[in-house]
Design a protein around this nucleic acid. Sequence first.
DNA 1: CGCCTTTGACCCGCGC
DNA 2: GCGCGGGTCAAAGGCG
Length: 412
Amino acid sequence: MEIDLSLKIENDEAKDSKMQELEDDQNEASMAAIGEVEDGSPLDMSLQDNHGGTKELFVLQMELNRMKEENEMLRKVVEKTMQDYCDLQMKFAQVQQNNHQKDPQIFLSFHGDKHWTIQGNSNVAKNLQKHVPVPLEEENEELGLSLGLKLNSGSGQRQREEEEEEEEKHETPNLASMQNKLHPGHLSAITTSHAHAISSPNRKARVSVRARSQTATMNDGCQWRKYGQKIAKGNPCPRAYYRCTAAPGCPVRKQVQRCQQDMSIMITTYEGSHNHRLPIGAPAMTTTASASESSFTSLDSSHPTLLNGIPSFTPASLLHQNPYFINHQRPLPTAFPWMPSKFSASNNGENVTSDPKFRVTVAAAITSQPIPIPSSSSSMGASREIENGNSKTKNWVLQSYTRSHKHIKPSP
DNA sequence: CGCCTTTGACCCGCGC
DNA sequence: GCGCGGGTCAAAGGCG
């Protein structure tokens, strides 16, 4: 990101030359006035004329003094502007440096269905606080669901992964404790989401979103094609790789993985920027560039269309405008559609995406075209592992697992 | 038939 | 240089 802070001002020479011209003109005028007195026919000159010439000279001198003062004032303004410009440049450099050193964190907490609080010291947080049309209160209620937003900059992948692990360590117990505090039925469709964006000159920007979802994929309004799946180290849940197929050659990819600590949380990581117009229902984070710039919107992974026509950051209003979110409360399922059906109970009723009532509600709430909902038929049960070196044993186990679940399809 | 998922193989970066 | 692990490719098969 580069911001042109160049400030075009006239340099001193040009300014001085103009001033000189001005003074010359005034001198000429004065001299002309004097010359009139001196070069005119002195004998014939009447007293009245003399009086008039002196008056004109006086006026011109006054004008000259006034212009000198004005010029001095302008000089001060220019100096002040230059000073401000230098300060701004220094601040900008400092901000850039800070972005590399630490990660400004923004935490959005949802208290019941009434209040949202945004915490954070960054400018983004302050901006959010300005724009969120709900009263901001201290986080003092026990009943709260936290939604963390994080903007990173210039971190390496390792660092990011460590941060993510760290976040999970800190975040998951909180979630668990919150869920323990809450009656299961109080968990509405929106529970938590987590996003952060990374921008680095050498790395593609990434935005990862954590959302409680029971569907296999995050339904974000875009069209995705799965091109790979792997078991990541330290997480038994397979990581699925998707590519945007909404337009040929679109570089956007996303990774979908379940959170190890809380299987109901799905971590979706978007990478790249779309080379096409997004569907109306596609949230901003599906294009990392816009996600980095804009505010994030809390969303339920099953309900991308809720973002249609709604300002980029209106979680509270979103909730209030869509009573479905508040009223559609259901207990956490014990199994999820992405699990092999062997392990999952009949949970078709849990998938609110296919709920016609929800669709009608959304259609009524927003004015947009219906977004085709991609079939979440990818079986996450099949696992695989790289076959090399010492991982062969693990690979055999995984392949065995794969074979044993190969013909198991998730319940429709 | 076209598009999708699955999955084994391959590539590449990083740490030691 | 080697091993490990993440990410991607591409062939095979399924499905509507």
